[in-house]
Simulated scan of single mutants.
Amino acid sequence: MNHQLGQPQPSTRPVPAPGQVAYDPASGRTGVVQAVHSVAELCFDHRMSSDRVAFLRPERGGVEWTADAGALRFPADGEGGAQHPHAP
């Protein structure tokens, strides 16, 4: 029995979860997802079009940023990589 009849169906596209590397198309950067929260849980002006906000941090450390969790995806080869070169 489908109890969510008439409700929007969740995306079948796999999305990065906390601890995974994600590409943020709005900033063009990749980072490790630290957390994802509903906008209702936040106490600041998030200015996101989605109802969820993701907190990301550069893979090698640095300043955390917020992103629209609905827009995140797994990075394709070369996306965001120029800012985070691989260690030798």
Rank of each mutant, 00 (worst) to 15 (best):
M1S: 12
M1L: 10
M1R: 04
M1I: 04
H3P: 06
H3M: 13
Q4W: 08
L5G: 12
L5H: 13
L5K: 14
L5V: 13
Q7V: 12
Q9S: 13
Q9P: 00
S11D: 15
R13W: 05
P14R: 10
P14M: 03
P14S: 11
P14N: 05
V15G: 04
P16F: 01
P16L: 06
P16E: 07
A17P: 00
P18K: 06
G19D: 10
Q20W: 07
Q20T: 05
V21Y: 03
V21F: 04
A22P: 01
D24S: 04
D24V: 00
D24A: 05
A26T: 10
S27T: 15
G28L: 02
R29D: 10
R29W: 11
T30A: 10
G31E: 04
G31S: 07
V32N: 05
V33Y: 00
Q34T: 07
A35W: 04
A35Q: 12
V39C: 08
A40H: 08
E41A: 14
E41M: 10
L42Q: 15
L42M: 15
D45H: 01
H46K: 02
R47P: 00
R47Y: 09
M48L: 12
S49Q: 14
S49C: 06
S49H: 10
S49M: 12
S49P: 01
S50M: 04
S50W: 05
R52Y: 09
V53G: 01
A54V: 03
A54W: 02
A54Y: 00
A54N: 03
F55V: 08
L56A: 08
L56D: 05
R57K: 15
R57W: 02
P58Q: 09
P58H: 05
E59A: 11
E59Y: 02
R60Q: 14
R60A: 13
R60T: 09
R60H: 14
G61V: 12
G62E: 09
E64C: 06
T66K: 06
T66Y: 07
T66G: 08
A67E: 04
A67I: 03
D68Y: 01
A69I: 02
A69D: 05
A71D: 12
L72C: 06
R73C: 13
R73A: 14
F74S: 00
F74D: 03
F74T: 01
P75Q: 07
A76M: 11
A76S: 12
A76T: 01
D77R: 11
G78A: 09
G78F: 04
G78Y: 03
E79D: 05
G80H: 04
G80M: 01
G81P: 03
G81T: 08
H84K: 01
H84F: 05
H84V: 05
H86G: 12
A87Y: 06
A87G: 07
